[in-house]
Design a protein around this nucleic acid. Structure first.
Lengths: 202, 202
DNA sequence: ACGGATACATACGGTAGCGTATGGAGACGG
DNA sequence: CCGTCTCCATACGCTACCGTATGTATCCGT
């Protein structure tokens, strides 16, 4: 017992607070984020928080900023396709954004979007993220040979669908939900003017 | 001045509280519903509230119940089509659920669904509403001659799309959003196996 | 007109959370 | 060894709510 664990003096930085806050937001939503509760999670008191941040709002803005950057980085990664694989990359995007595959990410997404409905700053960030996502996804459709207008509407439908799906409860509807979701992905991703036939058609 | 307006003795009933609460929820979300604030809106004190309701939760459940009944009544109305007009009725459903056409209704919808993400009772109600909506919309597709599986996936896509759209911000994307939305409606509503040609195709 | 029921108002205790003020321990350079 | 800077703990005041207890005005039947 030579090394007595005399209070490991856990050092927290801004980043720790932001990621912990993001976690709480995923679980409880924006309005569920309480400084004192968050401090308890991190085994410190709010004295620590108010040293790193001016107030609660500053933390929220930091969360928002970090979310924006992460989402933009991610979408650029997810929509990067080797030439000739754009079609399957579209299916990949749909898959990645399905609530079942990435529950935590979708919870944050929905929390931020709910926030954005009543906060202009959040709305601005969501607008920026949506803009990048739509343009990136449109590039994939364009690369498949889909004409501009159709590519635009397809990528709008794609994102509206993935977010909308995560808002709904299909349980009571039918047992074949997963199969229907595949059909929907086909409908969204495949275009009559698409040069590449679907790789996933049965 | 024979009739002095000496405090008109505004009588409130449960229904008034429920509809006022629904209004606040549309604006502020579930977590923004405060009894004392709500009472101020109604020009009474919370003494009145606690006469009509046991507590805040009882009001929320009443709101939920009323929302459920209203939504089910509405969807049955909206999906009733005269024979031969099922196709245009599908377009009508999409139109009615567009955020721009019914902003208030969509705000409530999103608030309830956000609530349902963390509350089982709300989730159950949403599940019931979704179930009825999906079945009603599916009937329309079936009546158009669309086979069962495809009708199922189409109506799932339809609702996921309308709710997802109201979560997104398309402003920075393109100036032709409304046209794209029409194209999307066409894509959702028209099926290769549909017996009725689109009435809205340019 | 009078007693009860109805539909509130008023007042109170209690909690949760925000932000501030101030104290104090540990690292660190000189 | 001492002062300073960092990072956090403690203690405090304040507000917004929730729910309860109790008072009170209005209505209503008999």
């Amino acid at each position: 017992m030579e090394e007595k664990p005399k209070k490991p003096r856990i050092q927290l930085d801004r980043k720790s607070w932001i990621s912990a806050a993001t976690e709480v937001i995923a679980e409880e939503g924006i309005s569920g984020l309480r400084i004192e509760v968050l401090a308890k999670r991190l085994k410190v008191t709010k004295g620590s928080f108010y040293w790193h941040f001016s107030d609660r709002h500053a933390l929220l803005l930091a969360v928002l900023e970090q979310w924006k950057e992460g989402r933009i980085r991610d979408i650029i990664k997810q929509t990067h396709a080797r030439p000739g694989e754009e079609q399957s990359q579209i299916f990949h995007v749909i898959e990645v954004y399905s609530a079942s595959r990435n529950r935590r990410g979708m919870m944050i997404e929905l929390a931020v979007r709910d926030w954005a409905r009543r906060d202009q700053q959040a709305a601005d960030v969501v607008a920026q993220v949506d803009s990048v996502r739509l343009r990136c996804a449109r590039e994939l459709f364009l690369a498949c040979g889909v004409p501009m207008d159709e590519a635009s509407s397809r990528c709008m439908l794609l994102y509206a669908y993935v977010f909308g799906t995560s808002l709904m409860v299909f349980d009571d509807f039918d047992g074949n939900i997963e199969r229907f979701k595949q059909d929907i992905a086909e409908l969204i991703a495949r275009s009559p003017s698409c040069s590449q036939p679907s790789l996933q058609s049965a």
